[in-house]
Design a protein around this nucleic acid. Structure first.
Lengths: 225, 225
DNA sequence: TCAAAAGTGTTAGGCTTACACCCATGC
DNA sequence: GCATGGGTGTAAGCCTAACACTTTTGA
């Protein structure tokens, strides 16, 4: 195929995007990884991502690579950090623009693809050895997730559009890794006026049905307080 | 010189760094700009920055370009955001990794250089028309500066190593664009245990001398609260 | 009737905010 | 002695955190 026909006066690095996609699965914060089909690091686990097309927006590239390698789309996505250590890739100089992504826990079954032998979810505290500097990227993403939790409405991106207050509290408890007081949590959350009752109830299980809420302005992650 | 001898199988974008350097000058938040010596946008004002060397770390590139174009070094520097709109530069596809920088107000006299016809400070609210997407970058940097003010010790990066509480309060007032209560400001600042008295006094002017303080741990910007 | 999760208020303490006068110096 | 900025404490209100029992349902 292409035979080194793209030439420049000065050396150019390659640019990739990599995505740290989080979801809560089985009450655990988990990360989506792919197993590399090709060298370098063939067979090792890594973040989904790949090379930027020359006419492609950075965020589009992140979305496209996530879709191609895992079959997942329509998640919350924001830029995380750009990694550019000259030795981070053994092939050539590669700058990676990384993204931080969240998805709802339900119905995300990753599929394999040509660049990825397979894709799978891993609990954040049970990650396999990772290719490149991807461990570092995941740790940074985790810190970003935790800090945004306290000053934004980002947690709703990890829930379906309709949810109970107990489900919402559970997201916070899993992410913060601590138990929260039910009365204080509900009082504080309702006082922010970012969620509203739908009028519907979830009657699942042998106990009192729970009110189902939704986000008032579901399209945007807002900065609060 | 070099005649397109750097060739690749696939097209590569160019990578630059650009730096938004803030300082307080004449009681005003100001940004350092350079006037472009070459096309595109020759003669227009722009952020200091330039192309990444192929073996160079991203942060080193930001520091180097700042030094080359303005003669300024040793400032606080952190990565801001990576801009990659495919049309942001008319020459070729260019990804810009931008940095947010702070310096002390005193003794920063920029000089010109080969890439910059001249360098100069502009008050943030009196910026000239800017090349590329540099306006957008500056606005993002300003938002970052304001938000970090409330949860980190970043303000000390805009002061010399020894300062009075009035000088410190003045930095906050200029950045926040509001007046702060003197007693509350001092109480709150001292309660954080991040500054200490030096034992010295500033006797400047016909009034009571002010205690001179310093940061306890001057090397690091810390997250507080 | 029992088990399981949903739902609901009050109080104490800490933090934030508002506010006004004396102090040390140079001229 | 006067003008200039430096330095200091208290009280009210607001926000945060701690804490336990009743409700509704399915089995």
């Amino acid at each position: 195929m292409a035979a080194k026909k793209h030439c420049y006066d000065y050396p150019h690095p390659a640019v990739t995007t990599d995505v740290v996609l989080f979801a809560i699965r089985q009450q655990t914060l988990s990360v989506l990884l792919i197993q590399r089909a090709n060298d370098p690091f063939q067979g090792m686990w890594a973040l989904p991502g790949g090379f930027l097309d020359i006419d492609e927006d950075l965020e589009s590239c992140a979305k496209r690579e996530l879709m191609e390698e895992t079959g997942i789309e329509a998640v919350y996505l924001e830029q995380l950090y750009t990694f550019g250590n000259p030795q981070r890739d053994p092939r050539e100089r590669i700058i990676s623009v990384t993204y931080f992504a969240l998805s709802q826990s339900d119905s995300l079954s990753p599929k394999a693809s040509s660049d990825a032998a397979q894709a799978a979810w891993f609990p954040i505290d049970e990650l396999p050895a990772l290719a490149f500097d991807h461990s570092e990227i995941i740790q940074l993403a985790r810190r970003r997730l935790l800090s945004k939790l306290s000053y934004s409405t980002i947690a709703f991106q990890m829930l379906p559009g309709r949810f109970t207050l107990s489900q919402l509290q559970s997201v916070y408890e899993i992410l913060l890794d601590e138990n929260l007081d039910k009365r204080n949590f509900r009082k504080g959350m309702l006082a922010r006026n970012i969620i509203e009752e739908t009028g519907e109830y979830s009657r699942s299980g042998n106990h009192r049905p729970a009110k189902i809420y939704r986000v008032v302005n579901p399209s945007r992650v807002e900065i609060i307080k």
